[in-house]
C-alpha cells in the first residue's frame, strides 16, 4: 500500500470557521495502479489532492505514505503535477525537469552523471528528449504538461499525483497523456492518482476510479462501477445518459419525430446517419411511411417525404433538408 488515509477530513479552515468538504475518507492506493478521481466541480477533488501534497493541512485524520505519516515523510515521498502555470523565463526544459533532482543534490545542486541519466530517461519516457535545450516557456501546452510529468518522474517517488493533467489540451494530446500515464504506472510500477474530467478516457485507461460526490468517495474498478450503476448516478441529469452499446456518456437527445431508416450500406455511414437523426430529434420507427431515409450507397441518401423523393450526396444535404422541412 503506497498511500492510505485514515478517517481524513478535508476542507479549508479560516480564522475561526472551517469549511469541511469531505470527511471520514479511508482511501487506499496500491503501486502500479492508475487511479482516476472524478466528480462534479466544487466537490473537493483539488482540495483532496492539495491535502495529499501537503499544500494544505488536513482538518482531521491521518495520511500515510508507505506506512509512514505524511508529516514526517521525506520530500521524495510523492511528486506532483499541478494545474498552475510555471514562470520559467530563461530556463530550459532540462533545467525544469532537473528540479526533480533537487531533493537528491547538494547545496549548490551539483548533479552527478547518475542524476543526468535519470533526467534524460525521464524526458525520453514522455517523448520530449529532443526539446531538452529549448526554452521552457516556448513549449506548447501539451509539451509543457509532458515536461512537468518528466519532472515528477525525475523525483523518483513511488507516488505521482496530477491535477487535471489534460485540461487545455487538444484531443490527441489528451489521449496521449492519459495513455502515457497508464504506461508509466506499468513500466515504473508507480502509483498514479489523477483528477480528471475526461470520463471516457478515465474509464478506458484507469485501473481504479474514485468517484467523489457530496456523499463521499466510491472506489472501484471502472467496469464494476458502471455495472452496478454507481458511475451513472454521479451524473444524474436529464441531459446525459450512459450509452450501454458504446460504453460512454453522451447527450440525452430529446426525440420527438419519427423516421424510418433503411440501409444498404456499411456500418460507419449507417451509424453516422443515425447520429445525425438523433441530433435533429428523430427516433426510428420501422414502417413509418410519411418520412423515410434510405442509404442507397456510401455517397447517396434518399429521403421520401409525403410521397416526394429527394436525393443527397452528403449528410449536410440531409441535415439541411430535415431542418427546413
Amino acid at each position: 500500500m503506497i498511500l492510505e488515509t485514515k478517517n481524513l477530513s478535508i476542507g479549508y479552515s479560516a480564522k475561526n470557521k472551517s469549511k469541511i468538504l469531505q470527511s471520514s475518507l479511508n482511501l487506499k492506493l496500491k503501486s502500479g495502479n492508475l487511479v482516476s478521481l472524478v466528480g462534479p466541480n466544487g466537490v473537493g477533488k483539488s482540495t483532496l489532492l492539495k491535502t495529499l501534497c501537503k499544500l494544505i493541512r488536513p482538518i482531521e485524520g491521518e495520511i500515510c505514505i508507505k506506512g509512514e505519516s505524511l508529516e514526517s515523510a521525506e520530500s521524495n515521498a510523492l511528486a506532483m503535477v499541478l494545474t498552475q502555470g510555471i514562470y520559467a523565463h530563461g530556463f530550459t526544459v532540462f533545467d525544469v525537469v532537473s528540479l526533480g533532482r533537487y531533493p537528491y543534490t547538494n547545496w549548490i545542486g551539483k548533479m552527478t552523471a547518475h542524476d543526468v541519466q535519470i533526467i534524460e530517461n525521464a524526458m525520453a519516457s514522455v517523448h520530449i528528449g529532443h526539446l531538452a535545450h529549448q526554452s521552457a516557456m516556448q513549449l506548447s501546452d501539451g509539451e509543457k504538461q509532458r515536461m512537468m510529468i518528466a519532472k515528477a518522474l525525475a523525483q523518483e517517488t513511488p507516488l505521482i499525483i496530477l491535477d487535471e493533467p489534460t485540461s487545455h489540451l487538444d484531443l490527441v494530446n489528451k489521449i496521449e497523456i492519459i495513455h502515457l500515464l497508464h504506461q508509466l504506472s506499468r513500466q515504473h510500477s508507480k502509483a498514479i492518482l489523477m483528477v480528471t474530467h475526461e470520463l471516457d478516457l478515465a474509464i478506458q485507461n484507469s485501473d481504479e476510479m474514485w468517484i467523489m460526490s457530496q456523499e463521499g468517495i466510491q472506489m472501484g474498478c471502472p467496469e464494476d462501477l458502471i455495472l452496478d450503476g454507481r458511475l451513472q448516478r454521479l451524473f444524474q441529469s436529464n441531459q446525459i445518459v450512459f450509452n450501454q452499446d458504446q460504453l460512454h456518456f453522451q447527450r440525452n437527445h430529446l426525440l420527438s419525430k419519427p423516421i424510418w431508416m433503411k440501409s444498404n450500406s456499411d456500418g460507419l455511414a449507417e451509424k453516422l446517419s443515425f447520429q445525425l437523426l438523433q441530433k435533429l430529434g428523430y427516433y426510428l420507427e420501422a414502417g413509418y411511411k410519411d418520412c423515410q431515409l434510405e442509404l442507397l450507397s456510401n455517397q447517396t441518401w434518399q429521403i421520401t417525404k409525403n410521397n416526394s423523393v429527394f436525393q443527397f450526396e452528403n449528410l449536410a444535404g440531409v441535415q439541411d433538408f430535415l431542418r427546413n422541412n
Binding site: 499544500l55 510523492l78 533545467d95 528540479l99 533537487y102 547545496w107
Partner: peptide, 23 residues
C-alpha cells in the same frame, strides 16, 4: 545568498512545486 541559489530557482518557477521538492 549563494546558499539559496538552488531554492530560488524552484521558488521562481513555481511556489507549490518548490514546496513539493521539500523547500
Amino acid at each position: 545568498s549563494f546558499g539559496l541559489m538552488k531554492s530560488m530557482n524552484a521558488l521562481m518557477i513555481n511556489e507549490d512545486y518548490a514546496k513539493g521538492l521539500g523547500i
